[in-house]
Amino acid sequence: KNAAQIVDEALNQGITLFVADNRLQYETSRDNIPEELLNEWKYYRQDLIDFLQQLD
């Protein structure tokens, strides 16, 4: 998997990933985040941060 796929997957589930103060953050109206997504975000944290910062 790559960062773009993970960001896309999150968006499809109503979750927006973004970077604030060099930390990976998310916004969602969901009550909870599936644990497998959280684990994936932790595992790919630096890739996601790098990818999202390139988009800014």
Rank of each mutant, 00 (worst) to 15 (best):
K1N: 03
K1D: 02
A3E: 02
A3T: 05
A4H: 08
Q5S: 08
V7D: 00
D8S: 15
D8Y: 15
D8H: 15
E9N: 07
E9Y: 08
A10L: 03
A10Y: 03
A10Q: 01
L11R: 15
L11G: 06
N12K: 15
N12I: 12
N12H: 13
N12Q: 14
Q13R: 09
Q13L: 15
Q13I: 10
G14Q: 05
G14Y: 05
G14W: 04
G14D: 04
T16Q: 09
T16V: 14
T16M: 11
T16P: 02
L17K: 00
F18N: 04
F18L: 09
F18M: 07
A20H: 12
A20I: 14
A20P: 02
D21P: 01
D21I: 03
R23N: 15
R23Y: 11
R23I: 15
L24S: 00
L24M: 03
L24H: 00
Q25L: 13
Q25G: 08
Q25F: 15
Q25S: 09
Q25H: 12
Y26N: 02
Y26Q: 02
T28H: 06
T28F: 04
S29N: 13
R30T: 08
D31Q: 09
N32K: 12
I33R: 01
I33D: 01
I33H: 02
I33S: 02
I33Y: 02
I33V: 10
P34F: 04
E35M: 11
E36P: 07
E36N: 11
E36R: 09
L37S: 04
L37Y: 07
L37A: 03
L37E: 02
L37H: 02
L37N: 03
L38E: 06
L38R: 07
L38N: 03
L38V: 09
N39G: 06
N39E: 13
E40S: 06
E40Y: 05
E40A: 06
E40H: 05
E40N: 05
W41D: 00
W41Q: 00
K42N: 15
K42H: 15
K42M: 15
K42I: 15
Y43N: 11
Y44A: 07
Y44M: 05
R45K: 13
R45V: 13
D47G: 06
D47H: 09
D47Y: 07
D47K: 10
L48N: 00
I49L: 08
I49R: 03
D50W: 09
F51V: 02
F51A: 02
L52P: 00
L52I: 07
Q53V: 12
Q53D: 07
Q53E: 10
Q53R: 11
Q54C: 07
L55V: 12
D56F: 07
